[in-house]
């Protein structure tokens, strides 16, 4: 079935309470306008999978009470310091964190895209991460003697949610070199994408764009959201809004401040719908 072109709110309505939602890191394609739409509709009980980390998006969703579990290699807002609502929620024991490591999350998704139950991965043995994971099992390389290797269970998200520069009318989505977004779309049951613009030409017609394009067959729905990743920056299109990000970090130091930010100071324009 061809992907549907929806409004931003209609796209956000496709994320049910309790869904396992894969999201990319702050330097990839983060659907922040859609995240605000999700918060506005009061989504609850999300299990976020950071691929391999989450940042401002995860912090907003935790602060708004939308999240019960985060599975990620890190929750990081980089140079802006500790993610304020995530850190507060962890100290309060209010959310569950499934700590992982970047390549294990990629490997779990790669297993899913291949239809495999697990993927072996080097490293990790002896890390306390493994102690807390019943979805990682120590196995053995069947082609060698005495070569222990970790098995990572497949990660099959209900939904992949991300932002990209453009889609075409058929629902093909151009992601360029940010191919973790391709991996997410391959692994997830449904893929919801916001884009800066919907173009009137076929992204698959020219190999120069086709090579960086997720074919529509993996895409469930798209919505146009111009500046849909602000206040973060979108690769080669716009830079981060440093003042808006700093203002968030300042306000979100307290629960009340976060609520005030959410009520009054939304830093990104709601998308044209």
């Amino acid at each position: 079935m061809a992907p549907q072109i929806l409004t931003l709110d209609a796209l956000a309505a496709r994320v049910p309470d309790g869904a396992v939602v894969a999201v990319p890191p702050d330097f990839s394609g983060v659907a922040l306008a859609a995240t605000l739409a999700l918060i506005a509709r009061g989504v609850r009980g999300l299990h976020l999978v950071g691929v391999p980390s989450t940042g401002f998006q995860g912090d907003w969703l935790v602060g708004a009470g939308c999240v019960v579990t985060i599975e990620a290699a890190a929750v990081t807002i980089g140079e802006y310091g500790p993610a304020p609502r995530f850190t507060a929620a962890m100290k309060a024991g209010a959310i569950r964190m499934i700590d992982g490591t970047c390549p294990a999350i990629h490997a779990g998704l790669q297993a899913a895209e291949k239809g495999l139950p697990f993927m072996p991965l080097r490293g990790i043995i002896g890390s306390d991460l493994a102690v807390h994971r019943d979805d990682w099992k120590l196995g053995a390389n069947p082609f060698a003697d005495d070569d222990p290797i970790l098995m990572i269970r497949a990660i099959r998200p209900d939904i992949a949610l991300f932002h990209a520069a453009k889609a075409d009318r058929a629902g093909n989505v151009w992601i360029g070199v940010r191919r973790e977004l391709m991996l997410m779309a391959h692994a997830a049951r449904q893929t919801l994408v916001t884009v800066e613009e919907i173009v009137e030409y076929d992204l698959l017609a020219d190999d120069a764009t086709a090579a960086g394009t997720i074919p529509a067959l993996y895409v469930t729905a798209i919505a146009e959201a111009r500046h849909g990743m602000k206040p973060l920056g979108l690769r080669r299109l716009y830079g981060p809004d440093d003042a808006a990000l700093r203002r968030y970090v300042e306000m979100a130091r307290t629960e009340d401040g976060f609520r005030a930010w959410l009520d009054g100071g939304l830093p990104c324009p709601r998308a044209a719908e």
Partner: peptide, 18 residues
């Protein structure tokens, strides 16, 4: 780890790249 006194961002790729 379930309710830490201090929480850092997370392990990133350390458990692999190391």
């Amino acid at each position: 780890p379930r309710q830490p006194k201090v929480r850092f961002p997370g392990s990133f790729g350390s458990a692999y790249l190391y």
